[in-house]
Amino acid sequence: MTAPLLSVRDLRVTFPISRAGDMPWTPPRLLHAVNGVSFDLPHGETLGIVGESGCGKSSLARGLIRMVPSSGKVLWNGDTDLLGLSPRAMLKVRAQIQMVFQDPLASLNPRMTLGQIIGEPLRTHRPDFSAKNRRQAVAAMMERVGLLPQMINRYPHEFSGGQCQRIGIARALVIKPRLLICDEPVSALDVSIQAQVIDLLKDLQREMGLTMIFIAHDLSVVKTISDRVMVLYLGRMMEMAPKHALYADPQHPYTQALLSAVPIPDPVAERAKRVIPVEGDLPSPLAPPSGCVFRTRCPRAAPACAKEIPQAGDEAHRVACLFPGPVRAAERA
């Protein structure tokens, strides 16, 4: 078996937080945005990452490509540790990892034309391309994502949100990367447009043999596109499984609660549905609970949960819980 494209071990992203009024020598408090996450991402697969706001989804993605300082191991192709590379060597890898962002319009420079925006990665990584070659590549890519090539001299503000996201995708794919990181690419779009963009991403993935990391907080969106799904909570992985296993048979109480909250587009079924309540608020990531971080809101919490940090195993369906298992009758509201 070949090595996975991306092999992440114990990834940590930590931000020092200094409060106003602190003296320069006061040690800053540490916010653990991502706290020891490990996973493998085989070639051509899509990994969906879900979790509520502030659980570290975006920090995880940014930590992988060193947009924020991170520690741990990120093995690229099984042999290159991205976190130990020199900036120059990292630049070479950056050509193979591209990102699509959440806000379609904000991720495009308003003063640049489409041609300049989509051509920027080529300009950075392919100095051998002449301006003419670059223009051709950009036009071809625009056509591929469903934009008319004659729009090449237009500016981003002349496009709709869905079109802007297509521009963002074209920019990410124009240098033919191997890994595409999508950070909530459809959260800012209408539902009908979401479907179009997701279909486009799936088509492109098949065509270009892309490996993808797809971040979202919408479980149904993640279900459509992912092969495997990871559930994050407060910077830690709760559960990770092939999508059918995760959606049909969730083992972690947090995943079960999340899934029970997904709206069903059928009023009768929606009314009959039982939501598993999650009490209280998200604890501050500056002072996460000891042991299992979910225990403060978990229906199954026991004294043991405060002492031991549950570890996920190496099996296909990984659960970080001391008491995994299907939903119990008493947990339904």
Partner: peptide
């Protein structure tokens, strides 16, 4: 985000 996008690309 467009500055972040440029940074991610390696500009």
């Amino acid at each position: 985000e467009f500055v972040e996008a440029a940074r991610a690309t390696g500009v």
